Simulated assay, not measured.
Amino acid sequence: MVKRIVGIGLIVFVFGLVGERSLLTGLVRKSLLDALAREAQVAEEIELEIAPLGLLDLLNGQVGEFSFTATRFGFAGGPVFTNVSLHSEGMHFDPDALLQKEFIIRELRKTGMTLELPEAELTTMMRRDLPELEPTVFLEENRVELEGFLVLFGQGRLPFRASATLEKASDRSLRLTPLGLKVAGVPLWAELFQKYAQEISWEFPLEIPWPVRLRHFQVAPGVIKMEWQEVGEEDHK
């Protein structure tokens, strides 16, 4: 705590911000933005607006109403999302971590976030996890289609096309499950379908290291549209 006060006090002194809430708010906003951009794998056209705050707010790691937007944004280990838009009534962050140029959110008040996952990004992720299939994902209205290659009956790699469904596997992941499968244009009978459907089934993480959870998603042409919200006390039980 002493180090935190000294560190923040030096920042305030150097920038001549004592008593200047607007200037202090601007400094904190820039520090948060820089930390976000540093920790993200991809951060394009990111914007952050925060309510005015004072020195006590900074010491306590507290921010009032704020909003965040980005055209493309994603963390390591997860997908790169597009059209990200978040609005929150406030948050608690780790002020000590911010002094180390890290952005750690401890808690979010009422929060809503919308974003999209493009089919091209989904294809990239699936090829990373299942490279032997060389899959390509196509997203239509409430429908998922796959193309790729399977080794069938020892006949080498044959092209396949599958219809699939997406379901929520957890608050931070989705699962793709085949519904129908054709190999070289021929539908597989039930027993063979069950065998190869397991090879194509895929669960993938939606890596967002903030206290948020997936509330709803919809498959639309070219993208998966998602709605997220804050993690509540009931989610920790």
Rank of each mutant, 00 (worst) to 15 (best):
G19T: 09
S22D: 14
S22W: 05
L23M: 08
L23Q: 10
L23V: 08
T25V: 03
V28A: 07
S31K: 12
S31A: 15
L32C: 12
L32P: 03
L33S: 11
A35V: 11
L36K: 09
A37Q: 11
A40F: 06
A40R: 05
Q41S: 10
Q41G: 12
Q41F: 02
V42I: 11
A43I: 04
E44S: 07
E44R: 08
L48C: 06
A51S: 15
P52K: 08
G54T: 08
G54V: 06
G54M: 08
L55E: 10
L56Q: 13
D57L: 01
L59C: 05
L59S: 10
N60F: 13
G61W: 07
G61T: 11
V63E: 03
G64D: 09
G64R: 05
G64M: 04
F66K: 03
F66W: 06
F68L: 15
F68R: 00
T69V: 09
T69N: 12
T71L: 06
T71W: 01
R72M: 05
R72Q: 13
R72W: 00
R72F: 02
G74V: 02
G74R: 01
G74W: 00
F75W: 15
A76M: 06
A76L: 09
V80K: 03
F81H: 06
N83T: 01
N83F: 00
L86R: 04
E89M: 11
E89L: 14
G90D: 07
M91E: 06
M91P: 02
H92Q: 10
H92W: 10
H92Y: 11
F93D: 00
D94S: 14
D94N: 15
D96I: 14
L98K: 02
L98Y: 02
L99D: 10
Q100C: 05
Q100G: 09
K101P: 03
E102M: 10
E102T: 10
F103I: 08
I104R: 15
R106E: 10
R106C: 01
E107G: 08
L108Q: 00
L108G: 05
K110E: 12
K110L: 09
M113I: 13
M113Q: 11
T114Y: 07
L115M: 15
L115T: 13
E116Q: 12
E116F: 01
E116M: 03
L117P: 10
E121W: 01
E121R: 02
E121D: 03
L122R: 04
M125R: 13
M125S: 14
M125P: 04
M126C: 09
R127V: 02
D129N: 11
T136P: 00
T136Q: 05
F138H: 13
L139E: 10
E141Q: 12
E141R: 10
N142Y: 02
N142H: 07
E147I: 05
E147D: 12
G148R: 05
G148D: 08
